[in-house]
Nucleic acid binder design. Structure first.
Length: 220
DNA sequence: CTCCCGATAT
DNA sequence: ATATCAGGAG
């Protein structure tokens, strides 16, 4: 594990690389954001954004999602993948919002995670982006880059990764840094072919040094 | 742990 | 052909 000081150097460099990082899912209110994040499981943001314009035009309220047959909603989100689970969860979630939350998305993380299809990561995104609460949502990118850089260990589970990042990063930077780690993972430290050769963190990166030794990083 | 799953990049 | 994508539930 790298020191807290070294971790902050990583964070500050990534801050310079992606100063404008933010949520890339298109949504105009907490309800739309929750649906969008739920749909984004194991699927790219870009693909979700191709579906949501028509989806949000057709379904504006929880009642709207319950007004059609399950099969129709499945077809409307089919291209996203995992569409049977997601369609079912959207309808169950809609019924719960009507029954228990006056049709509104709750703003507390502990309430959000009770909704079907909403786990800790989705709840953290909603509270952070829609309700402006400091959070670090650990998705596939945040987990991968944190482990590669040595901010946490490869064996750590996502909750440990989240707690470690919270310890290292000042709370006022949680939400911004969280998005910057996603951008760093999505556009630079790619899962399959990380751009180590052009990475400003290569000298201090545990995974980058390992890849250098293995000859996976080509040097001119 | 497995299952859910289509679209896209490599 | 295969790995990967803002995961969650059983």
């Amino acid at each position: 594990m790298v020191s807290k000081k070294k971790a902050m150097e990583f964070i500050d460099t990534i801050d310079l690389m992606f100063p404008d990082a933010e949520c890339e899912l298109h949504a105009n209110n907490p309800f739309e954001l929750t649906i969008a994040v739920l749909l984004s499981a194991q699927c790219t943001d870009a693909l979700v954004n191709k579906v949501t314009p028509n989806l949000f035009n057709k379904y504006k309220t929880p009642e709207d999602y319950l007004s059609v047959e399950l099969e129709e909603l499945q077809q409307d989100i089919r291209s996203i993948g995992l569409y049977r689970n997601k369609a079912k969860n959207i309808q169950k979630l809609s019924q719960i919002l009507i029954d228990q939350y006056n049709g509104q998305i709750p703003s507390l993380r502990d309430e959000l995670v009770k909704l079907p299809g909403v786990g800790r990561k989705t709840a953290n995104v909603v509270t952070s982006v829609a309700f402006n609460e400091p959070q670090i949502a650990v998705d596939t990118h945040v987990e991968r880059v944190s482990k590669r850089l040595g901010i946490c260990r490869y064996k750590d589970d996502v909750l440990t990764v989240e707690k470690t990042l919270q310890k290292v990063i000042p709370v006022e930077r949680w939400s911004k840094t969280h998005h910057q780690l996603i951008f760093f993972g999505r556009y630079h430290c790619l899962a399959r072919n990380p751009k180590c050769r052009e990475c400003p963190l290569l000298n201090d990166c545990r995974e980058g040094q390992k890849r250098l030794r293995k000859g996976l990083v080509k040097i001119d």
